[in-house]
Design a protein around this nucleic acid. Structure first.
Lengths: 215, 215
DNA sequence: GCTCCAAGTAACTTGATGGTTACTTAACCG
DNA sequence: CGGTTAAGTAACCATCAAGTTACTTGGAGC
């Protein structure tokens, strides 16, 4: 066999590993400092590769940024497509996910701040993933788990808001609750709140349903 | 009278006006590009002042950034302390405010991404303002406008989330709803949604419906 | 073994950018 | 009125950072 083991972690030459290292290092750097603040040299240092390789594989800084974002996006999507159940669980699930993957939230934030809102990266795939999520919401509405009176698009937006916000704005979280987002105590409180709060999404007893219907 | 009219807009020398111009220009620039991305020369050009003056008044780029943030914060606080009524109105009010003052939302976002979460700028005053807001929520809970079952801190966090999020993440808003945050149609939809959605905050069951009807 | 190409390295270039120096000019005050 | 100080200007500098040039090396296929 001439081919070296793919999992070899210390082979003299290994394009895949190099690419991977660059992407991992770049994610850290970009998540921490954003596009403008990230230093290409820092990425190279962190990845323990020569800066030239970075240009070799990704063209330029922007190409690397896009590659990082794209990779994160597809990771998340593959991973996100399996969840079901009622809104309470979803809210908790997504809040936990945001806490566990701060880099993701931050990347979205950087994208929001510096990206062109008109043509987001990987728009097509993201739209598809969003559509899948939307269908799940519609199903739940049909099943009566979520009130049919709400526009599913706004339900989705509301859920994202409620789960991502504390991670996206840690300083406000601290200002308001007095605790760090990463404080386990805060997280427990938040989970409890979300569980209770999820009631909004469910069709209410009695009258309210009628009101919703009449609308 | 030796003193020139304070409102004179073209006096040969006018420190106040210069300071003001710098701050205004800097807000725009920082909101658009963040701290790292902002260009001091661009600020100077935009403000139509000599770059040196900027260092004269604010020391360095960071000093300027802090000054901008501080100014915006105090502006908002003065302005935010008058609102009352029920959660539906508050939600709508704050959503509108976010839409109207995107720069503010973006500054908070930049702060979140690059600021030290441990020691936010102007912490003391912000805490005080937050506390005032919290008291309003508690009052409403006492009056039965908001369910007493919720932790007021989390209610506040939830309200902020719901109102700021679409502006903070315009690309997600577009991806999810298909519309720009600034599309009047979106804004109308969102207002309607928030109004309905605010029901969650109100004490549940029987009462709720009545309140809805009475409104 | 030899050749060729991708992987990899080190040192360099070039332009942008935050900050400074050295100077001029207006205004306030005793 | 004169002189001290703050407002204002223009040209400059040092540094930093993205991107390149020019080179070396490993290995797959013949």
């Amino acid at each position: 066999m001439t081919a070296p083991a793919k999992t070899d972690s210390s082979a003299t030459r290994n394009p895949e590993r190099t690419r991977e290292r660059i992407l991992t290092a770049a994610l850290k750097e970009f998540a921490a400092h954003g596009f403008a603040g990230a230093r290409v040299d820092a990425i190279a240092r962190r990845a323990a590769i020569n800066k030239r390789m970075l240009y070799h594989y990704f063209g330029d800084k922007e190409g690397l940024f896009k590659a990082v974002l794209r990779r994160k996006i597809s990771q998340r999507q593959a991973w996100a497509d399996n969840l079901s159940g009622d809104p309470a669980e979803s809210l908790q699930f997504w809040f936990e996910a945001a806490c566990k993957d701060v880099d993701w939230v931050r990347m979205l934030e950087w994208e929001a701040l510096q990206g062109d809102a008109q043509k987001p990266i990987d728009e097509k795939e993201r739209r598809a993933a969003t559509a899948r999520g939307m269908n799940r919401i519609r199903q739940r509405q049909a099943r009566g788990q979520i009130s049919a009176g709400f526009d599913p698009r706004h339900v989705m937006l509301a859920m994202r808001s409620l789960t991502m916000f504390p991670v996206a704005f840690p300083q406000l979280t601290r200002l308001i609750t007095g605790r760090s987002v990463f404080d386990p105590k805060f997280q427990r409180e938040r989970m409890a709140f979300l569980k209770k709060f999820a009631a909004v999404f469910r069709p209410a007893q009695g009258q309210q349903v009628k009101i919703n219907f009449m609308k």
